[in-house]
């Protein structure tokens, strides 16, 4: 899929899987603020970060390469959701889940989204250690251990970059092609970490510790 401005998938299984993923990585939390008391700090799910993850996965491989993967009609987000379910299945099979499965939080999701948040991270660990049967995975993960391992870092990195960048503030334009996105309000992730946003400059100049004496170019 090229980044033609097409919106993100509407497949509820895929959406549920990635909602549960980003919830596990950046959960909401409560924070004590001076003068205000306890405030709720939004997690990645509330900021729709899962839509970014799905968008990136489905726009990351160019057509000629997808064609050679025999993946023209495939969806990277769907294959990745299935990969996460494979990790969840293995965790369950090994009897290593900490908490009981819960199918109500994400009714359209698979095994991965039925795990507790910490068990989702442990399912990712199982995948990262390649403790799953690679033969049964969908293309492009099938028998591709390098991509499988790499993707576990990517699935953590993407939500973090998105949540703490300006992306959530693209609001109604967030799923358009990048050239058509517009920042509609101050990014909540920046507010959370007190980053003031793009700047023309700052005045915290504290001098120079040393100076270079240049020779003239023609010497």
């Amino acid at each position: 899929m090229e980044a033609s401005g097409r919106s993100v998938t509407l497949n509820p299984y895929i959406i549920s899987t990635f909602r549960s993923l980003v919830e596990a990585i950046i959960p909401p939390h409560l924070k004590q603020k001076d003068y205000i008391g306890t405030v709720h700090v939004a997690g990645a799910q509330e900021l729709h970060v899962y839509e970014y993850v799905i968008w990136i996965l489905d726009h990351s491989i160019a057509f000629p390469v997808k064609e050679q993967f025999n993946f023209v009609n495939g969806s990277m987000s769907k294959s990745t959701a299935e990969l996460l379910d494979a990790g969840a299945a293995r965790l369950i099979q090994k009897g290593q889940i900490f908490y009981p499965l819960n199918g109500t939080a994400y009714p359209s999701g698979g095994l991965f989204s039925a795990l507790s948040p910490i068990d989702r991270l442990r399912a990712i660990t199982i995948i990262e250690r390649l403790d799953i049967n690679l033969e049964y995975l969908s293309i492009p993960y099938k028998n591709n251990p390098v991509l499988v391992r790499n993707m576990m870092d990517v699935l953590n990195e993407l939500p973090m970059f998105c949540h703490y960048s300006e992306w959530p503030a693209y609001g109604k334009t967030r799923l358009l092609s990048p050239e058509y996105r517009r920042v509609e309000y101050f990014p909540p992730g920046w507010f959370q970490v007190q980053y003031p946003g793009p700047s023309f400059g700052y005045r915290d100049f504290r001098g120079f510790l040393a100076i270079i004496q240049h020779r003239k170019v023609d010497q």
């Binding site: 991270l121 660990t125 990262e128 870092d153 990195e157 970059f161 949540h163 960048s165 992730g189």
Partner: peptide, 19 residues
């Protein structure tokens, strides 16, 4: 900037910190 900073925390050879 914070997005880049956050993403750099997530690339690890040793997996999650709880391990």
């Amino acid at each position: 900037s914070p997005g880049l900073t956050a993403s750099f925390y997530e690339l690890s050879q040793s997996g999650y910190s709880f391990l």
